[in-house]
């Protein structure tokens, strides 16, 4: 293998893969090298194993702990001790996590058994009835009807799936970056009460202005009409902390799009949604690329009178 002219290329590509530095073309090249040569695949496995072993070996390579005196007279810990400490924490953490797993699964088992075992996409509308509550946590791995991209990394502890914003094209307007709930223009997703609350567990890091838009079926009698709302004029979605947090927003914070003067343009200066209005669509939207990721959305018939943000303790 060492004399193989592709050896150097292969190790460079595997190193790049481990450091997440491969371009799509390089990834493709690595895949073709691996697919073509069983020796290359063995070599790849060896490098993967090495990558897992190195943290353990490096941690155990240090000399016995020997705090020495610094010029200031204080005891200091050398680098290997610090690493060993990290390693001990890792081992302890893994053992603790395993113990917690056993305890958790013992208590949570009945709940898990009620969940669908397969990840096959399920039409979200099949679970909906027009009640005053609605929820989605994506834990089936499905996002049927949603506009967004399922993500599986950097989520809150215990969560497997979330949804991230993706670009949405409009024929006669600028494209935007959206996460949008499944639309249901016929019946609506949920009927609002005067105290209905939108709860979202999310992470938003960049300074992009994210707005929340909502459509409802108008409660006015006669021909069916839809209303459009925006979360607070110009206010936008709160809390760009880059950390996971849960915000609870009363639907009374939404303002309706109305025409103030006859012949004028509609603007968001109307009142809040009225009790019984069915929500048909709701989206989190920004005009610039957004790093918004939502882990869970749920609508409850009651909630705090004012917007509340609670950081998630991971």
């Amino acid at each position: 293998m060492k004399n193989n002219p592709q050896h150097e290329e292969l190790t460079r590509l595997i190193s790049g893969l481990l450091e997440k530095r491969l371009s799509p073309a390089e990834h493709e090249r690595l895949e073709s090298l691996l697919a073509a040569d069983p020796q290359a695949r063995r070599f790849y496995m060896q490098m993967i194993d090495q990558e897992i072993e190195l943290p353990c070996l490096v941690a155990s390579a240090g000399e016995p702990a020997a705090p020495h005196e610094s010029p200031s007279g204080q005891n200091t810990i050398n680098g290997f001790d610090a690493v060993r400490s990290l390693w001990r924490r890792w081992v302890f953490g893994t053992a603790l996590a395993l113990g917690m797993l056993i305890v958790l699964i013992m208590f949570a088992l009945p709940h898990w058994f009620r969940k669908p075992a397969a990840r096959a996409p399920q039409p979200i509308t099949s679970t909906l009835s027009l009640t005053d509550s609605w929820a989605e946590d994506f834990e089936s791995g499905a996002s049927t009807g949603w506009h967004g991209r399922i993500v599986t990394t950097n989520l809150p502890v215990g969560s497997k799936y979330g949804i991230a914003a993706v670009v949405k094209e409009f024929p006669e307007a600028e494209s935007s970056y959206n996460i949008q709930l499944p639309e249901n223009w016929e019946r609506g997703l949920v009927a609002l009460t005067t105290e209905s609350t939108l709860n979202v567990t999310y992470r938003l890091g960049n300074r992009t202005h994210v707005n929340v838009f909502m459509h409802t079926i108008s409660p006015e009698t006669g021909e069916r009409k839809y209303e459009m709302y925006q979360l607070r004029t110009g206010g936008g979605f709160p809390g760009r902390s880059g950390r996971w947090q849960t915000v609870s927003i009363p639907f009374s914070s939404f303002v309706r799009k109305i025409v103030v003067e006859p012949g004028g343009f509609p603007t968001f200066v109307g009142g809040p949604p009225r009790a019984g209005e069915p929500v048909t669509a709701l989206s989190f939207s920004s005009m610039e690329p957004s790093d918004l990721v939502i882990d869970r959305v749920w609508i409850t018939p009651t909630g705090p009178a004012r917007e509340e943000i609670v950081p998630l303790r991971n």
Binding site: L54, P55, V58, A59, A61, G79, F80, A82, V83, L86
Partner: peptide, 10 residues
């Protein structure tokens, strides 16, 4: 070894 310690250990 020092580099590996920083990269993988720390």
């Amino acid at each position: 070894r020092e580099l590996l310690m920083l990269r993988y250990g720390r």
